Simulated assay, not measured.
Amino acid sequence: MFFALNSNKMFFMFILFFSTLISISSNSWLGSWIGLEINLLSFIPLINNSNNILSSEASLKYFLIQSIASINLLFYIIMKMILMNNFEMNNLFSIMINSSLLMKMGSAPFHFWFPNIVEGLSWLNNFILMTWQKITPIILMSYYFNNNFLHFIIIMNATIGAIGGFNQTSLRKLMAFSSINNLSWMISAMMISENMWMFYFFFYSLLISVMCFMFYFLNMFFINQLFLINMNFNIKLFLLINFLSLGGLPPFIGFFPKWVIINFLLMNNFYILTFVMIMMSLILLFFYIRILYSSFLFNYLKLKWMKIFIKNKMMYFINFFSLISISGMILSTFFFM
């Protein structure tokens, strides 16, 4: 089972959950920093696996990167407290605090650790890293952000997330760059309002959970497995629907939150920002379609000897969300009538 965890792992999952609540409900920067440190120390045992060298390496890298980001964050928080009355330094402190939080969530241009660590993790840990681990830094950043700096970060995320996906053979790295691209939409939503960010994050988490579950269930880690393993046509169709929905192609449900954000950005005259984000989403869709094109059209005699049929009740879960994704935009159009 995808969510089958032993008692130790469940204990650390609870700590991970409560550490996020500590950070976002704290009334001081120091309390938020303590919550981030508890979050780090609870996630390391979850990703560490003594039987897997890549997993052990990933946990060490993750610890070092997060520790550097935490030290930077603590340093700038203390400096801000000391120089509280110096208004000239406020702009610099906001950029530095934002940079530390962006490094923690794996945002461009501080993203270089993210694809490497993702490669050494299981699909469950990838799901946690791409969703839950982004909650605390984004909410903390919403309290104290630099507007112009974040516009630059949004463009960087959208561009690197789209271009970085080219020439990738690993599905985990591909999902990592997809996460970086989606982070640009999350930051845009956060700048509009916290409710808008929660709205986008809910849809993103839903789609990522379905994709991670499917890859876990099919035991897939590389693109060539999509066409070397002769899957049932229905499974390929579910993959197609969920990939296109994650990319934000209408009429799938993944386009709905992006559509709302585009409307808000255009209302506030962010035309160039919106144009860049839409163009980069199209590039993201291009390499999603390139993967699915191979899995649908590659057909040779060797594959006809074996076909995978999955008989499991959990496939109804995938089925259900795929059908929601197809009919999602029909429902969503009523909101804008």
Results as ranks from 00 to 15, higher is better:
E194P: 09
I187N: 11
F199W: 11
V210R: 04
M175N: 09
R172M: 11
M211H: 05
A189D: 07
S188H: 08
L171D: 02
F203K: 04
S209F: 14
Y200D: 07
M198A: 15
K173E: 09
A189Y: 10
I180D: 00
S205F: 11
M196F: 07
S170F: 02
M211Y: 02
M198L: 15
N195E: 15
F177K: 01
L206E: 01
A189L: 11
N182D: 09
M196I: 13
V210H: 00
F202R: 10
F177V: 01
Y204Q: 05
M196C: 15
F213M: 05
I192G: 08
M198H: 13
L183M: 12
I208R: 06
W185C: 00
I208W: 05
N195T: 15
M190F: 08
S179L: 01
F201N: 00
M190R: 07
F202G: 11
Y204F: 04
F177I: 04
S170R: 02
M175F: 12
S205C: 12
M198Y: 14
L207K: 04
E194M: 15
I187G: 08
Y204P: 00
Y200L: 08
I192A: 03
I187T: 08
N182K: 11
L171C: 01
F203Y: 15
S193I: 14
E194C: 12
L174H: 00
S179P: 00
S170H: 00
A189E: 07
W185P: 00
E194H: 14
S188K: 12
M198N: 13
C212W: 03
I180M: 03
S188C: 15
Y200R: 02
L174N: 07
A176Q: 08
S184T: 05
M191K: 10
L174P: 06
M196R: 08
L207E: 03
M211R: 05
Y204C: 01
V210A: 04
M211W: 06
S193M: 12
S205R: 09
M198I: 14
